[in-house]
Nucleic acid binder design. Structure first.
Length: 483
RNA sequence: GGCGUCGUGGCCGAGUGGUUAGGCAGGGGCCUGCAAAGCCCCCUACUCCGGUUCGAAUCCGGACGACGCCUCCA
C-alpha cells in the first residue's frame, strides 16, 4: 500500500501521487507574525513536521514552503497602536516564532517567504485575474467576483448562493463590494494611519495586498502552479483556502493543489484554544512551569491530526512519562550494546524489529495515524524488554536491529532527540562534581556506611540530580521539575 | 439556520462487523543495603433507543450531548 491521506477537497482518502516521481511539493500556511504563537498554533506546525519527516523517511524528497504573513490588519494595527514601523512589530515576533519552532524540534523547511517581500508577485497575480475578467475595481481597490468563478466554495462544501445568509454579513465595511460575498485582492488607498506603515504602488494606485493573496502568489512562485499537498488548520478552510483556490485557479486555469490536508484544533477547557477566548498556553509559559519540550511535542502528536485534542497539564505529565518509557528503552538498548555478545535470540528480535517497521509504516501510511504508530511502537518496546530480561537475551545483531528501529521511530516522531537534549548537562564543572559525589557514595556503600551513602544521595537530589543504581554502576539524571 | 467532526475503561487515546490497541494512573511481583529508576503481570470499555446480521463499539435510523466553520483565526 502507498501513502494516503484524507483529502478535504474530495472528502475521501486518496493516495499521494506527486507530479514528479518521488518528489513532494508541499505548501504550509504559516503564522501571521503579529503576536507570539500559542501551543494550539503549534499543533498544526508539529503535525506538519511529522508529515514532512514521514514523507522523507518513506524516501520522498520534500520541498516545503511555509509563508510568514507579515502584513495584514493585525500587524498593521499593532504597528499603528505602538507608533512604529511594520517590521518593528513583525521582526521580534518572527524571531520568537522560530525559537519556539526550534525548541519543539521542528525541522527547517526549504523556504519561508515573507509576504512583504513578494508584493510584486501578488500584483502580477491580480493582473492575471484582471486579464481573465474575474475582478473589478472600485475606489482603487480590486475585488474578486466569485460569481464568475464556477465551483467557488467547493473545498468548504459551501453553496455560494446561500453563503452569508445566516452568518456575519457586514464583513469589511471599509470597502465597497458589488457582492458582499466577494473578497478583496488589493486594498486601495492609504486610509487613516495604515498608509504610514504599509503601502505599495500598484497599477491601481497605492495600497496593500488583501489577505489570501500572499499564499497563492508565494506558493506558485516557489512550487509551481499545482502543489502536491497544501496543509493548514481547519479554520483556514473557509474563507482562506477557498479563496486561495479561486485566486490561483482563476489565474492559471489549473488545479491549485491535489491534496488538501487540514489539522483539527487543540481544545483547552473543552473549547478551541484561541487568543480571543484567552484559554491558551504559549510554549514559553509551559516551559516556565517546568514542562519539557519532548512531552509537549509528544502530546501534540499523540492524537490523530484530524481529531480535536483536549490539551491539559495532566495530559502533559502523562506524555512526559510516556516519552520517558521510550527514552529508557533506547538507553537500555544502547547500554546493552556495549556489553559482550550474549544473545541466542537474535533471530526473534531481528524479526520483531522488522515486524514493527511494517506495522509502523502501515499505520502512518494510513492518513498519518500517529496514535496507531505509537501503539505498535510500545508493543515492540514491551516485547523487546521481555526478551532482554531473559538471561540469554540479545546479541549484537538483535541490538543493532532494535537500535535501528528506535532510530527510525525517532527520525519520524523526533521526541527522543529532544529528550536527550533536555537530559544533557552543559556545565563540565557540574558534571565533574556529580561524578565526584557518586564516587564518594560508592566508597561509602562499599564500606556499608549507608547513612553517609544516603546523605550523598539526598544532597544530589536537592541539587536536582536523581541517582539510579543498576547492574553496571550508578547512573544519574536530571529530575523533571514536574515530578 | 447551513456545512462538518465527534461521543470508547479512573484520565488520555487508536480501532469501522467476529480475534490483545497503546499510554498514564491504580494493584501485584522482580531487582535493590534501603530506595529510586527500570522491567514484567493484572485492570477488558465502547452515550441512549430501535433496526440489519449467525454475530455490531464498528453498518442503518432516531434521540440526547459536545466541539468547530459560516469572511480575525493553526
Amino acid at each position: 500500500m502507498s501513502v494516503r491521506f484524507y483529502n478535504t477537497l474530495t472528502r475521501a482518502v486518496e493516495p499521494l501521487e506527486p507530479q514528479e516521481e518521488g518528489h513532494v511539493r508541499m505548501y504550509t500556511c504559516g503564522p501571521t507574525v503579529y503576536d507570539r504563537a500559542h501551543i494550539g498554533n503549534f499543533r498544526a506546525f508539529t503535525w506538519e513536521d511529522l508529515l514532512r519527516r514521514y514523507l522523507k523517511w518513506r524516501g520522498y524528497r520534500v520541498t516545503q514552503v511555509m509563508n510568514l504573513t507579515d502584513v495584514d490588519d493585525r500587524t498593521i494595527q499593532a504597528a499603528v497602536d505602538r507608533g512604529v514601523g511594520l517590521s518593528e512589530v513583525t521582526a521580534p515576533v518572527t524571531e520568537a516564532f522560530f525559537e519556539d519552532w526550534e525548541t519543539l524540534g521542528l525541522e527547517s523547511v526549504e523556504e519561508n517567504p515573507r509576504a512583504t517581500e513578494h508584493v510584486p508577485q501578488m500584483i502580477e497575480l491580480v493582473r492575471q485575474l484582471e486579464e481573465r475578467g474575474l475582478t473589478y475595481e472600485k475606489d482603487g481597490s480590486v475585488y474578486f467576483a466569485i460569481d464568475r468563478f464556477p465551483g467557488y466554495g467547493r473545498l468548504a462544501n459551501l453553496d455560494p448562493e446561500s453563503l452569508l445568509t445566516g452568518g456575519r454579513v457586514e464583513g469589511d465595511e471599509n470597502y465597497s463590494k458589488e457582492n458582499p460575498r466577494d473578497f478583496v485582492l488589493w486594498k486601495g488607498g492609504a486610509r487613516g494611519h495604515e498608509g504610514e506603515v504599509a503601502v505599495w504602488d500598484s497599477p491601481w494606485g497605492p495600497g496593500r495586498p488583501g489577505w489570501h493573496l500572499e499564499c497563492s502568489a508565494m506558493a506558485m512562485e516557489y512550487l509551481g502552479e499545482t502543489l502536491d499537498i497544501h496543509t493548514g488548520g481547519v479554520d483556514n478552510i473557509f474563507p482562506h483556502h477557498v479563496n486561495e483556490i479561486a485566486q490561483s485557479e482563476g489565474a492559471t486555469g489549473r488545479p491549485f493543489a491535489r491534496l488538501w490536508l487540514h489539522a483539527e484544533h487543540l481544545l483547552s477547557e473543552g473549547e478551541k484554544m484561541s487568543k480571543s477566548l484567552g484559554n491558551f498556553y504559549t510554549l514559553e509559559s509551559l516551559l516556565e512551569r517546568g514542562y519539557r519540550p519532548s512531552a509537549i511535542r509528544y502530546l501534540l502528536l499523540s492524537a490523530h491530526y484530524r481529531t480535536q485534542l483536549n490539551f491539559t497539564l495532566d495530559g502533559l505529565k502523562d506524555a512526559d512519562r510516556a516519552v520517558g518509557r521510550l527514552f529508557e528503552f533506547q538507553r537500555r538498548i544502547r547500554d546493552a550494546a556495549s556489553l559482550a555478545d550474549r544473545g541466542s535470540r537474535d533471530g526473534d528480535l531481528v524479526e520483531l524489529a522488522s515486524r514493527w517497521r511494517e506495522a509502523f509504516t502501515e499505520a502512518l501510511d494510513d492518513d498519518l495515524n500517529a496514535s496507531d504508530a505509537l501503539g505498535v511502537t510500545f508493543v515492540m518496546v514491551r516485547e523487546a524488554n521481555l526478551a532482554l530480561d531473559a538471561a540469554d537475551g540479545a546479541g549484537a545483531g538483535a541490538l543493532e536491529a532494535l537500535e535501528g528501529a528506535v532510530d527510525d521511530f525517532d527520525s519520524v516522531f523526533g521526541v527522543l532527540d529532544l529528550r536527550a537534549r533536555e537530559e544533557t548537562v552543559d556545565s563540565a564543572d557540574l558534571r565533574e562534581w556529580i561524578e565526584e559525589r557518586i564516587a564518594a557514595r560508592a566508597a561509602a556503600r562499599a564500606e556499608r556506611d549507608f547513612a553517609r551513602s544516603d546523605a550523598i544521595r539526598d544532597e544530589l537530589l536537592e541539587a536536582g540530580i536523581a541517582l539510579e543504581d543498576g547492574p553496571s554502576g550508578t547512573r544519574w539524571k536530571l529530575r523533571s521539575e514536574t515530578d
